[in-house]
Write a protein that binds this DNA or RNA. Structure first.
Lengths: 200, 200
DNA sequence: TATATCATGTAATCGGTTACATGATTAA
DNA sequence: TTAATCATGTAACCGATTACATGATATA
């Protein structure tokens, strides 16, 4: 009936703008890839779409930065109305998580797989998640502090006194690391189980 | 270019059909809710859609069971072609997980929330995930064994000798429990952190 | 009497992915 | 010279959710 005009993807773009603002669509895509992904991935087409929608809603403003020999940078910043929208989103209950992990589906229906195929998929999963864990551990030291433009070069450690104003990024990174560790230990256990049982 | 005709949701319906034999769309919806959800949720409209698509592909067959005073049951069973499709899906690499959890987003952008709103959302998350953990622990004892019709009443414990043929369901339940435990302990930690710091 | 369950679908809409498209600069 | 990066978009398609729709039976 009364469809709301915004969704998690909308607020994730808006939140990035509020935190690291002003940013272009291209900057936002990089932030998604380096920080929100795989928490909440987004194709660049979707980011541009949300920016256009939020501009219509009056949540963001756009300023054109002219460049020679390259398309102009359209730099977006959050408005007061956008900040209000972020805050009232925070007052609403969050939708409940669904994992939607294809690897888990494949294990669940493992009786219809060849043993080698399953093992290969588990090994790929291990490689993927080991890589993620490493990235989280390395990148957690190079999260730009609030308001600091990501292209400026200067970077702070969110765990040191310099940016104690905002502990939330650190909390998220901690979750991501714990999640990857849990997932990985299950993957290793499952792999060992399969390798030890040749009669599957 | 060469779009494949099937997706994780397709194979999750197909896998359920392969495992628990002839089922109606209604049966499948219940299985999704009790077993796959929240691993891979599905609305009933989507399940009916996938059944129609797979019938066109020749992966499933439909038999009409006439009923008095109720709409006929359309009971679907997997074909050999469907079983082949399941197996060749298992040979392909799985897509990589994205969490897409709105609660994590809200914590990430917690600096734009009132402290009370964040705490309330965390508490709701704790209630949600405690409930899930409980469900996993209880339902893990009542998973119907392979080929056993869910309406027949007889139920087996997948951890006992009776259904040792298929250990995969048990592996999935174990993952789900470990995941919920990890998530919950992070939620409790985060809540404590917020409650102890009144200057946010 | 009212709600829940059984049972099956259609329609609308939007989120999200993939592909298409352009064109300059810079590094391997 | 080839590929990657910077930079911005459009178009098509499909997954997924929500709402609309029907109608009987059983339970509270």
């Amino acid at each position: 009936m009364d469809r709301s005009e915004a969704y998690p993807i909308t607020y994730s773009v808006l939140g990035l703008l509020a935190f690291w603002g002003p940013l272009s669509g291209y900057d936002l895509k990089r932030l998604f890839d380096h920080m929100l992904s795989p928490m909440w991935g987004a194709a660049h087409s979707q980011i541009y779409h949300e920016l256009r929608r939020m501009k219509d809603l009056g949540w963001v403003e756009m300023e054109r930065e002219e460049q020679e020999s390259r398309p102009d940078r359209k730099v977006y910043s959050i408005t007061q109305s956008g900040r209000d929208a972020l805050t009232s989103w925070q007052a609403k209950p969050a939708s409940v998580l669904q994992l939607r992990d294809e690897l888990l589906l494949k294990v669940m229906f493992g009786s219809f797989a060849s043993r080698d195929d399953l093992i290969e998929n588990l090994k790929k999963g291990i490689a993927d998640h080991e890589m993620r864990l490493l990235n989280y551990r390395q990148n957690s030291q190079y999260i730009p502090a609030r308001g600091e433009h990501i292209q400026e070069g200067r970077r702070r450690n969110p765990y040191t006194s310099e940016s104690q104003e905002d502990p939330f990024m650190g909390l998220i990174v901690r979750f991501a690391i714990e999640f990857e560790k849990t997932y990985l230990s299950w993957l290793y256990e499952t792999l060992t189980f399969l390798e030890e049982n040749e009669t599957l």
